[in-house]
Write a protein that binds this DNA or RNA. Structure first.
Length: 291
DNA sequence: AAGCTTTGCAACCGCAACGCT
DNA sequence: GAGCGTTGCGGTTGCAAAGCT
């Protein structure tokens, strides 16, 4: 590690001579043909050159993994898949790669998009907003988003007990993801994950009580990190992805109306509803609220 | 029919971990 | 152990299509 600090990170490719944007059928064919013949060669950076593509290696990798790879499933998600995604999301957050690993043929990108555009709304559609007056749409707000998606109070991120809405309301013990007591691993079955989450579901909504880390700093600090457990699985001190589930009441993707620290009033009673909904949807084996 | 808004998804970006030297 | 290149991941963006007025 350690190139990050310098700010002098070399670009992964010559951006000037690299094509961006949607892939053409010809490019797809070229990439597929090359990989079918030679494999990836363990080096995506040099692959486009060898294959005769004017693309960044990263772009090739992404295209292959998300689209060209054999056995990729496209199209509608089944109810079972919906439920599994929901269960896993409430267990481990936006760990899309891990969630994707439980859904054969689905890519993390697919699942992420599906969650952000459909599943989240589907889930939230089950909730009735408390205060219709707050339900006025803001730019880019989906019509069926309840207004009470909390945007958290305008407190300093360092104040214990609050978070800005840009950061996870959740902190997880560093050993949670690879704790033997939780039984978590990428190889864990969804059932195991639910069990793990069950043991942890309380603190998920513990608000301020759960937000301090052991060194006394606040877990509002977004911790991005990937440790790996014995299974080669990302694990560790995680910023679970419920943040995206919670914060953006008026955009799928970004809080376009309010700046950092600005907020609408919070409807805390609605938090209880969400809490109940998620714990119900997660813990209850009869996940039938999608039906 | 035209213009505007919203939605869905492919692709990009930046960061952090990995792994080799 | 440090440095550096590569990989993998999650968040974000851009744009075409669909829907609405």
């Amino acid at each position: 590690m350690g190139t990050m600090e310098s700010g002098l990170r070399a670009p992964c490719c010559d951006k000037a001579n690299v094509k961006k944007g949607p892939w053409s059928p010809e490019e797809d064919a070229t990439l597929k043909e090359y990989i079918d013949k030679h494999g990836t060669g363990g080096n995506w950076i040099s692959l486009p050159q060898k294959a005769g593509l004017k693309r960044c290696g990263k772009s090739c990798r992404l295209r292959w993994l998300n689209y060209l790879r054999p056995n990729i499933k496209h199209g509608e998600f089944s109810d079972d898949e919906d439920k599994l995604i929901c269960t896993l999301f409430t267990s481990i957050g936006s760990r899309w790669s891990i969630i994707a690993a439980q859904l054969p043929g689905r890519t993390d990108n697919d699942i992420k998009n599906y969650w952000n555009t459909k599943l989240k709304k589907k889930l939230m559609g089950k909730l009735v907003p408390h205060h219709p007056s707050q339900n006025q749409r803001k730019p880019h707000q989906s019509p069926n988003y309840p207004s009470f998606f909390p945007v958290f109070p305008p407190q300093s991120p360092t104040q214990t007990g609050y978070f800005t809405g840009y950061e996870s309301p959740i902190s997880v013990p560093p050993n949670f993801m690879h704790s033997s007591s939780t039984g978590f691993s990428t190889n864990a079955t969804p059932t195991a994950l639910v069990q793990a989450q069950e043991s942890y579901v309380g603190p998920l909504f513990g608000g301020g009580e759960a937000s301090s880390s052991s060194d006394g700093s606040c877990s509002n600090q977004v911790i991005r990190g990937r440790e790996h457990d014995n299974y080669g699985v990302p694990s560790g001190n995680e910023n679970l992805g419920l943040q995206s589930f919670f914060f953006d009441g008026y955009s799928d993707q970004k809080p376009s109306g309010l700046g950092y620290g600005e907020s609408d009033p919070v409807d805390y009673s609605s938090l209880e509803e969400i809490k109940e909904l998620i714990s119900t949807s997660t813990v209850c084996s009869n996940l039938n609220f999608f039906c």
